[in-house]
């Protein structure tokens, strides 16, 4: 600072200008611990050799190996399919639930609102075991269908939590205006209410897709033997020794997830208004 010029704000409290060295150190350590393993996975997915400890030059051979591995590709296909169906199913049901909860001001609505939160706080392993027991008890064969059902059940709450505040913020007169202009109840919903909720709906859809695609616990308990969702397949593969192919798969999944989450956060901005994942981005 220039010694001849008076300090701009002389009444600043003592110590406020000192750099918080300790806090910075903790932050750095935190991020290193958090991201170093992930960085290693990405790095070694490009390793020219099979070694998982020494980097021996850049190559795409493990990506090539992945795209020739029919079992892993089958798992990828199944995961995409499960995520897509779970996304559609949970968005339809979650939006309907959010509309119902906001508009039912009675006691039933209040109780339903509380029960809706239960899946969010239940440990996922409990949900997984419970789903497995249910399917076994009903004598259902485990396959991609059972995974989809379990994932939908689990995801509805997320959609509803995201949508509920948006629905509550809607001006009820807008839907009335639509009916005033000749729309039926259903047309008013389709032509006015859902478009108004579209940013939030798209954002929650993308989020659910990403969550389900990455999900391991629930998928592990509810999947059949062949094919298995990608996360479960990777876990099984690792038990018989780590192939660098897994690093390539992990890197691809990471890239996909980052893209989706970025998309979910960007959607409200694309629409030029608030209404997406306020809950998550904290806007």
């Amino acid at each position: 600072m220039n010694p001849t010029a008076p300090p701009p704000r002389p009444r600043r409290r003592r110590g406020q200008r000192r750099r918080p060295v300790f806090a910075i150190a903790v932050t750095v350590v935190f991020f290193v611990l958090l991201y170093l393993p992930i960085a290693m996975v990405v790095l070694f997915s490009f390793n020219a050799q099979k070694s998982l400890t020494i980097f021996k030059g850049f190559s795409l051979r493990w990506y090539e190996a992945f795209f020739h591995d029919s079992v892993l590709l089958g798992s990828l296909g199944m995961s995409l399919e499960v995520s897509l169906v779970a996304m559609l199913g949970s968005v339809v049901l979650g939006v309907a639930l959010a509309l119902g909860l906001v508009r039912n001001k009675g006691r039933l609505g209040a109780y339903a609102g509380l029960i809706m939160m239960v899946p969010l706080i239940t440990p996922e392993i409990v949900t997984g075991v419970a789903s497995l027991l249910l399917f076994k008890g009903l004598g259902v064969t485990l396959n991609s269908g059972t995974v989809m059902i379990a994932e939908i059940t689990f995801s509805i709450s997320y959609v509803t939590v995201i949508l509920r505040s948006r629905v509550a913020a809607l001006n009820p007169e807008v839907e009335e205006a639509a009916m005033d202009l000749g729309a039926t109840r259903w047309q008013a919903l389709r032509l006015v209410t859902l478009p108004a909720l579209l940013p939030a709906i798209l954002a929650s859809a993308v989020l659910i897709f990403a969550l389900v695609f990455d999900d391991f616990v629930l998928a592990y308990f509810t999947t059949g033997v062949d094919p298995q969702p990608l996360a479960v397949r990777i876990y099984s593969a690792i038990r018989f020794g780590v192939e660098p192919t897994i690093n390539a798969v992990g890197t691809l999944m990471l890239a996909g997830s980052i893209t989706l989450i970025g998309l979910a956060l960007a959607i409200p901005r694309l629409f030029g208004r608030r209404g997406g994942l306020d809950l998550i981005s904290g806007e």
Binding site: N171, E173, V174, E176, A177, A178, P195, A196, R273
Partner: peptide, 9 residues
């Protein structure tokens, strides 16, 4: 309507 209730989209 008092709030105009226009369709913003």
């Amino acid at each position: 309507f008092q709030s105009y209730a226009l369709f913003d989209h």
